[in-house]
């Protein structure tokens, strides 16, 4: 759930039929197992493995509540999946460098090349 924004990402893991939906942040969460909150760019960088989740948790950039097993399983599944930003947005992978540049311009984004 991105901080201060009117929408949230609703993830439903279901084998190969899993889905991510964008929903209103004030919508009834229904039977949500767990919730992860933080700045949008932090959440996106966790989706594609660019940011270290434990570090974000230690530094309070994200808050988590609900089923900790589900949160940990999601974290490890995302890390194993090697998704790119293009995959997450449903775009061709060739567009990933362009997306990184756009997010870099948007600020608070650290491209891969910046890492030692």
């Amino acid at each position: 759930m991105p901080d201060g924004l009117p929408f949230a990402f609703e993830m439903r893991p279901d084998g190969t039929a899993g889905s991510i939906r964008v929903v209103r942040s004030n919508a009834d969460p229904g039977e949500t197992s767990a919730c992860i909150r933080g700045p949008l760019l932090t959440l996106l960088s966790l989706f594609d493995g660019r940011r270290d989740a434990d570090g974000a948790f230690f530094q309070r950039r994200i808050d988590v509540n609900g089923d900790t097993v589900a949160i940990l399983a999601l974290h490890n599944a995302l890390e194993a999946s090697e998704l790119t930003m293009a995959d997450i947005l449903g775009l061709p992978r060739q567009l990933d460098p362009l997306l990184q540049t756009a997010l870099s311009i948007a600020g608070h984004w650290r491209p891969v090349e910046a890492y030692p």
């Binding site: 493995g49 270290d52 989740a53 570090g55 090697e82 890492y115 030692p116």
Partner: peptide
Amino acid sequence: RQRGRAYVSRVTAAFRA
């Protein structure tokens, strides 16, 4: 071993260097 790719890549690269 329970950490993610960002941690593994950054720490390994820094120690390699």
